[in-house]
């Protein structure tokens, strides 16, 4: 498991492109990376997808080049410490947005199952061309303003990664996946902690992503 300190190592890995926010319609098209971790921190399921609501095409467009998709896993795993801190703070299984990784503008939401599996969702707004936008913000100031930034132009629930609407949409998404996960885990041929290879489960996750995000 990565600790807080290893965040510094992550910073080196990430190309330091300034992230810019603007009231652009593209903003509503988020990229998502969803992963399920077994109680022993082994990833047992991964999927990447994009916004489907509001005319999105459901394709993930992360800021990393295609060759660096492992960054998503790094970032998600690095938030595990915070998940562990947060998991006893309230009685709920859905922990909402628990972590932000500013250099990649990556937001992490978490959901815990009672048996110790963790559902983690990384969501990342798309990268926009920095030219021609007013009030360009550096990556450092982005974090401070992101929560309060209003993006009135967007109708998508996922437009603002920390808004209550987004939290709610992700809660619905997580709950639906939890249901499917329970069914999958009940299959006699599935062993606890084993990778989930079921195509049925993958289809259900994709459908839940389309429905809620």
């Amino acid at each position: 498991m990565l600790s807080y300190q290893s965040r510094a190592a992550l910073d080196v890995l990430i190309p330091s492109t300034p992230c810019v926010l603007s009231p652009h319609s593209q903003l509503s098209k988020m990229s998502y990376y969803f992963t399920i971790l077994s109680p022993t921190d082994t990833p047992i399921f991964n999927i990447a997808f994009g916004t489907s609501k509001g005319g999105g095409d459901g394709i993930a467009r992360f800021r990393f080049p295609d060759t660096a998709q492992y960054m998503n896993q790094f970032i998600i795993h690095s938030s595990l410490d915070i998940v562990e801190e947060a998991q006893w703070t309230n009685g709920g299984m859905y922990l909402k947005h628990i972590d932000t990784y500013p250099p990649a503008t990556a937001y992490i939401s978490a959901f815990l199952t009672p048996s110790g599996a963790r559902f983690l969702l990384l969501h990342q707004p798309p990268q926009l061309p920095s030219s021609g936008t007013s009030g360009s913000l550096g990556s450092s100031s982005l974090l401070g303003s992101s929560a309060s930034t209003t993006r009135a132009s967007s109708s998508s629930v996922a437009a603002n990664p920390t808004s209550p609407q987004t939290e709610e949409a992700i809660r619905q998404f997580m709950n639906e996946i939890y249901e499917s996960y329970v069914k999958t885990a009940m299959s006699p041929f599935y062993k606890q902690g084993m990778e989930i290879k079921s195509p049925v489960f993958r289809t259900r996750v994709t459908a839940a992503g389309k429905k809620w995000l």
């Binding site: 069914k183 299959s187 041929f189 599935y190 290879k197 079921s198 195509p199 049925v200």
Partner: peptide, 8 residues
């Protein structure tokens, strides 16, 4: 056969 998915 509820919940069952055959081994792949």
């Amino acid at each position: 056969a509820d919940f069952v998915e055959l081994p792949d």
